[in-house]
Write a protein that binds this DNA or RNA. Structure first.
Lengths: 349, 349
DNA sequence: ATGAAAGCGCTAACAA
DNA sequence: TTGTTAGCGCTTTCAT
């Protein structure tokens, strides 16, 4: 029994089994049926490989085959229920395909985005799911140059297929929900509904804002530009803006549409300075879902994007090799306040 | 100007620049000072590489150098504020070191754990941070066999250094906090404090439970075994157990120590069936922090583990090459109810 | 049914 | 200061 220095390689297994490296390779990579290697040989090799603790060196395989077996997911941040759910689904889909999932966050920072995509390309990522980057064009260019198949998620990109939430439909439902659960006794500017958060330039916000405007116009008869406060997604900014709004109109409005969880974090921060009654009088909606938000001291209508479905569709697009910049919209669910228990909980802890 | 078929390689740049592949390699991998290559040559090569959109093939480099430049983090789930914060810190630390972070979740599933670690090893991961796996011994064995440096996080392992929260201290503070904010008018079994969640066998739970018992004994004079319900970390299980408890003792107890966010998710699920008054009468504590929990309709004392510090220490251990199974404990913070705003918000959205 | 040999892109001796 | 060469571990024709 000859000694092996480090991790066993195909050569070691070949020597130990009396077969050639190429035979061992075929057996260990599962292509031995096609190469018509005898079952006996295959079993012997697998036996030895197992007992030696052999595991394929994916760097070598990747180099030789010209691909790596890795798929990437780019997120703005892990620290958010919506994106975290995406990660979970992404891992499931990747593993189902025998691929290695690599999830990275880039904090909506354009430099970080291109640097990170560059890194992934260096590692010969096979395909990339791009969720919520700030500069899809730059990222897409990099991918195209490197021949990396890619799909946009959540926010569409210009040069490849995109899977997004049906932002118009979701926003329309949410807007209706908060409008119809408004309470009376609001006067002046406070009687009007407001939307806070998001970036006017981005597709999701644009659609959500349009739906908000449409529904508000339909229900209330009119809408002013200042009822839409697209102050980005950062909590701190949102807090400042909600503060300004409250000062300007003399209190919370009758209805408030909060455009994403991160914005909601900022808003809730500000709410702590108000009394519970003040808050409870307002009808609050949030485009995105978090189970704990479901249980807050005031009712929050939420839109839960179907991240599992979105990720699944993204993978289908990658599998099928489509690269036209189609836009696929997935309808989200409207979640009634305090209805956390209508949906199955995760059994993971 | 000669044509290049696919992605440019070092050979292409060599040809284009009139230098040799090894010179190009030295320049492009930043070791050219040591090789005393002239600044002029270096600049010329960098120029050309830039204009050709060259990027290092990390699979080739990794294969040649015998390491990959990747570090891994194994989590139970992304879908949890504590672990999500870990991911964020992990990425920062990894990138600071020029490494590529790979974060994967394994859902506390022993098979998934070993399969995933196997995959990472196949990819020649350089080191691994292992947070909250169910079978540290199996995972550690794999790493050791493959010569992968590793550090345990959150839950200690037997064969390598571990960085964990100071569970005893954190739990003692939290227990005190809820005991001292109990309200009167509880009789019989309901007057007693209870702890729910966790696994008796695991280090974190063991320490937290011990502290809970010590402090309860100190403050209340005694504690019964049935005041500790170590029912695992799964939300569904926790819901069932809290339900049983309430039936058994006739309502919520005066004080409830919830051992982790996932358990809290289950508990809050059950709370929805109670009235706000019922809940508000109980003093609730949660070992772990979530900003939205801070804003619930009832006060929750929380322990916020210092995940940034924990991750930083884990990397220091990896950097320094220590592999004795030392245990490093990082003191967590006690967060008073509704004090979300004492801490800086993320500015990421 | 199996082996020999070339080569993926890069780096590190060793030469010059 | 730079070039030549060998080889990391694997896969894949092509031969037999």
């Amino acid at each position: 029994m000859s000694e092996i220095r480090g991790k066993p390689t195909i050569k070691d297994i070949a020597r130990l089994s009396g077969a050639s490296p190429s035979t061992v390779s075929a057996v260990l990579s599962g292509t031995w049926q096609a190469r018509r290697i005898s079952e006996a040989t295959a079993e012997r090799i697998q036996e030895i490989a197992g007992s030696q603790g052999y595991s394929t060196n994916m760097q070598a395989r990747g180099l030789r085959r010209g691909r790596s077996g890795m798929v990437g997911l780019i997120l703005p941040t892990h620290d958010n229920r919506f994106f975290a759910e995406m990660s979970q689904s992404f891992e499931v889909e990747a593993r189902q395909r025998g691929l290695c999932p690599v999830v990275v966050s880039t904090r909506r920072d354009p430099n970080e985005e291109i640097r990170t995509v560059g890194t992934l390309i260096s590692y010969s990522i096979e395909s990339l799911v791009i969720a919520g980057v700030s500069d899809p064009t730059a990222v897409g260019d990099l991918c195209r140059l490197a021949g990396v198949r890619h799909v946009y998620l959540d926010l569409p990109g210009p040069d490849a297929p995109s899977v997004v939430s049906d932002n118009y439909a979701g926003s329309a439902s949410l807007t209706r929900a908060i409008l119809f659960s408004r309470q009376g006794h609001f006067e002046g500017l406070r009687a009007r509904p407001y939307l806070i958060g998001g970036v006017v330039g981005d597709h999701a916000s644009a659609r959500r804002i349009r739906a908000f405007r449409d529904v508000v116009t339909e229900v209330c008869g009119a809408i002013d530009d200042d009822q839409v406060i697209a102050c980005g997604y950062a909590p701190l900014q949102a807090r400042a803006e909600i503060d300004r709004l409250v000062r300007r109109i003399g209190g919370l409005p009758s209805a408030l549409f909060v455009n994403s969880l991160t914005v909601f974090e900022g808003v809730i921060t500000y709410f702590q300075t108000l009394t519970a009654e003040d808050i409870q009088r307002a009808a609050i909606g949030c485009y995105d879902y978090d189970p704990f938000v479901s249980a807050l001291q005031f009712a929050v209508h939420m839109v839960r994007q179907n991240s599992a479905e979105m990720v699944a569709r993204a993978f289908e697009l990658i599998d099928s090799g489509v690269d036209r910049p189609d836009l696929i919209e997935i309808e989200p669910d409207l979640i009634a306040p305090r209805s956390i228990y209508d949906r199955p909980l995760s059994d993971v802890g």
